[in-house]
Amino acid sequence: MLTDVEYDNLPNLISGCLVHEVTIGFMCLLPYLFLVYSIFHNWWIIEMAEESYKVSLHVYDLSQGLARQLSTTCFGKAIEGIWHTGIVVYGNQYYFGRGIQNAPVGTPPYGTPLKVVDLGFTHVLKNVFEAYLQEIDHRYTAETYRLLTHNYNNFSNEVAQFLVGASIPDYILNLPNEVMGSPMGALMSY
């Protein structure tokens, strides 16, 4: 990538090649090559579709309502649910289970979503998205899963930011902090 000084001096480098009637060779093309590289090294951002694809967040309560009923007794505060999320785009739901997984909408093992949150639209092509998932799959494996700090909701949040530039709702992301901030949660950390 070009430094600020090199970038600011780019017109002088190019005109220097032309003014001195130097044959444009590799050295004169070098600034152009650096400029092209600096623009396209994040190719997945550049390669976008003209049509848009709807992106939504499917939210499931893994406790199936028990968290709402028992949380005040167990944690000393009301917790609405134990949230599990998946991103829905291109007719599939993408989620973090035993690694990054996907399934046609309506077939994941969590049943019917409790909520569907509209995240917006993306212009990222499906093949670019799938390449992105391959790029991050080493961070989302069964071995890297952590219930409170690196889970399905963290995956959904990262994917949402890639596709639409927005985070998933805070009430989902902040659930581990709510649990750990309770009297019982403090005991669970030992």
Rank of each mutant, 00 (worst) to 15 (best):
L114D: 15
L114A: 14
Y90E: 07
Q93D: 14
K115D: 08
V116K: 13
I100M: 07
G99R: 06
N92I: 02
T107P: 04
I100T: 04
Q101S: 15
P109W: 00
V89F: 00
G97S: 14
F96M: 02
T107G: 02
F96L: 09
V116I: 15
T107Q: 14
K115I: 01
P109H: 11
K115A: 07
L114C: 11
V89D: 06
V105W: 00
Y95T: 08
P108Y: 00
V89G: 02
F96W: 03
Q101P: 04
T112Y: 05
R98V: 08
K115F: 14
V116T: 15
Y94V: 01
P108I: 06
T112L: 09
Y90W: 10
Q93I: 11
P109N: 10
P108S: 13
P109F: 03
T112V: 09
V116Q: 13
K115R: 15
Y95L: 08
A103L: 11
P104K: 10
V88M: 08
N92S: 08
V88N: 07
G99V: 05
P104N: 04
Q101G: 00
V88C: 11
T107W: 01
Q93H: 07
G106N: 01
N102M: 07
P113T: 05
V105E: 13
L114M: 13
G97M: 07
Y110C: 04
N92T: 03
N92A: 02
V88R: 08
G99A: 07
I100A: 01
Y90A: 06
Y110N: 09
V88F: 00
G97I: 01
G91I: 11
V89E: 07
Y110D: 09
